[in-house]
Structure formats: structure tokens, C-alpha cells
């Protein structure tokens, strides 16, 4: 082994670089920044844009909102039935965001479709592949994903400055909430999702992160799974001091007898730029008086 260590190091670097061609989710890969943008989506595929797309259909409402916030609303060609923001309601719908009507998607002639990546929609990606329509699969498992999507969209749409501003504002907003409650003792809380038995929010999820930012300790932070159904007994065993649910979630009466149930606006369960607002709302509920 006469090879100098530094040479080994550079071989390793080349290998790593070629691996990166496959793409790390959310990565912006700029090989030649002047001749376009290459990004890796959350399914691991890479997409290359030589110019910003002009006819975008986003099947993910949070991403639709981001595009509008970026000022790219005019580049949207359609929407889904999931979208609620008034800026896009005039656009033609392609139906359900998880099972879009392919006929409607085709007729809109999109040059980019942004879709949910994951087992909830196994068919849209392959269907778009078969028709050579560029598509980008996104997941919003963590808060950092929201920021990464925004950065990617900024590059793709040629609106990096706006994206940078929005990301900063988003992060500042969350940081402010974190600072305001930092001095207060953390409330031991469980976030409940609908189900019988209820599903709880576990580790490595944006909802768990929001709980922490808002001054709570997720009693299921050690669950080892993002989400899981847990028996009522199993939930009460952890003796949380608070239960958190989104508005409209049915809560078993037995929980109410045990600890207060805080309701947060439904927006908290569609992760996007509104997470700052959600964190603020949650912090106000858990720590009255901590925020103006």
C-alpha cells in the first residue's frame, strides 16, 4: 500500500461525487450553474432545467402555496381539489391530489408536475414517466424538508432571492417561537392523530419538531417510528400533561379526564410555510402569556 493518503482521499471524493449523481433528496446539484439547474427530488431522481418551467401543476397544496408566495403564481397551469388558497381557485383542477385525473393533467400540457412521493400515491410517477412529463416527488417529513423544497423551487423557477427571503423569514419565525418559550419548563405532550386506537406522532417528524419548538416534550419522541397506533392504556401510561390535536379530530373522552386537550388549526397537518403560524399558535396554547 504505497498510495499516499491524500490520493486515497481524492479517489473517495470522486466516488462520492458520482454517487451524488443519483441525488440526495432535496439537493440542488449545480454542475455548470450557468447552463441550468439540476435538482434531486425526494424519490432520488434528478431533474434538469435549462430554463424555468412555465406550466407547473402542483398536486401538493403546501407546494402550491410556496409557489404563489415565491411570486410564481402565474406559472401555475392547474391545481387540485385539495387547494384552498384563493390565489389558485380560478385555475382548472385535476381532481384529487393523490389520484389526479391523467386526462386533465395531459390537457394542461404541464412542463413540471410536483407530486407526493411515497406509498400514498404509487401510480402518478410511473404514469408521468411513461409520457415524458417532468415530475418532482416531494415529501415533507421534517421541517428541513420544507426549507429544502423552497430553496429548490427558488432555483428552478429562477426566483432564488425571493426563496432565500422566505426561508429566512420562515426560520426566523420558528426561532422566535423557540426563544420565547425556551425559559419555560417543557410541557410533556402527546400529539394525537385520528384512529381507533389513536395514532401518535413519534420521532423524526415535523410534528414532533413543532412540538419541541413550541415548548413541549413529545412523550413519544422515543417511539422509533414516525407515526404509530398506540392503545389508550399505552398513551395514558406515558402520563402526558397535555394532548395536542388538529381541529376536528375526534378525541376519546378518557383523555380529557386525564389532561387538557389543545386544538390547533388544521393547517398544522399540511406542512408548509404556515408551520411558523402553527408553532406560534401551539406555543400560545401550551405557554399562555409567553407570546404576544
Amino acid at each position: 500500500m504505497g498510495l499516499p493518503l491524500s490520493l486515497l482521499g481524492s479517489v473517495a471524493a470522486v466516488v462520492l461525487a458520482s454517487c451524488a449523481q443519483a441525488g440526495t433528496p432535496g439537493e440542488v446539484i449545480d454542475v455548470f450553474p450557468d447552463s441550468g439547474v439540476t435538482v434531486a427530488d425526494w424519490s432520488g431522481s434528478t431533474l434538469r432545467f435549462t430554463e424555468p418551467p412555465k406550466r407547473v401543476v402542483s398536486l401538493v397544496p403546501a407546494v402550491t402555496s410556496m409557489l404563489v408566495s415565491l411570486g410564481a403564481g402565474n406559472d401555475l397551469a392547474g391545481r387540485t381539489d385539495f387547494d384552498t388558497i384563493s390565489a389558485v381557485l380560478a385555475l382548472p383542477s385535476v381532481g384529487d391530489g393523490l389520484r389526479p385525473s391523467l386526462e386533465h393533467l395531459l390537457i394542461l400540457e404541464p412542463d413540471l408536475v410536483i407530486r407526493y412521493e411515497g406509498p400514498q400515491d404509487p401510480s402518478t410517477g410511473p404514469a408521468l414517466d411513461a409520457r415524458d412529463i417532468p415530475h418532482m416527488g416531494v415529501r415533507t417529513d421534517r421541517i428541513e424538508d420544507v426549507a429544502a423544497i423552497l430553496v429548490q423551487l427558488g432555483r428552478i423557477m429562477g426566483r432564488e432571492a425571493q426563496a432565500g427571503e422566505l426561508v429566512e423569514r420562515f426560520e426566523v419565525e420558528l426561532e422566535e417561537v423557540r426563544q420565547r418559550v425556551a425559559k419555560r419548563p417543557a410541557v410533556r405532550a402527546a400529539y394525537l392523530l385520528p384512529g381507533d386506537p389513536p395514532w401518535v406522532v413519534g420521532s423524526d417528524t415535523y410534528l414532533g419538531e413543532i412540538l419541541e419548538i413550541a415548548g413541549a416534550e413529545n412523550v413519544f419522541g422515543d417511539l422509533g417510528r414516525p407515526y404509530a397506533p398506540v392503545s389508550i392504556e399505552g398513551i395514558l401510561m406515558r402520563a402526558p400533561d397535555a394532548f395536542v390535536v388538529a381541529e376536528g379530530t375526534a378525541v376519546d373522552e378518557r383523555f380529557r379526564a386525564h389532561a387538557p386537550v389543545y386544538q390547533v388549526s388544521r393547517g398544522i397537518e399540511t406542512p408548509g410555510l404556515t408551520l411558523g403560524t402553527s408553532a406560534r399558535e401551539l406555543a400560545r396554547a401550551l405557554h399562555p402569556g409567553a407570546l404576544p
Binding site: L98, R99, L102, Y116, G118, P119, Q120, D121, P122, S123, L193, W199, R225, P226, Y227, A228, P229
Partner: peptide
């Protein structure tokens, strides 16, 4: 029970049947 919520949703949709 052992999988994540999105997988549950995908499975439910699939089990309803579709010619899509």
C-alpha cells in the same frame, strides 16, 4: 398497524378497486 399513515392511505385507495 406497523406501517406509516401514507402507506395506509395508499392501501385503502387500492383496496377500493380502480381501472386507473
Amino acid at each position: 398497524a406497523l406501517s406509516d399513515a401514507p402507506a395506509v392511505r395508499g392501501a385503502m385507495l387500492w383496496m377500493m378497486g380502480s381501472l386507473g
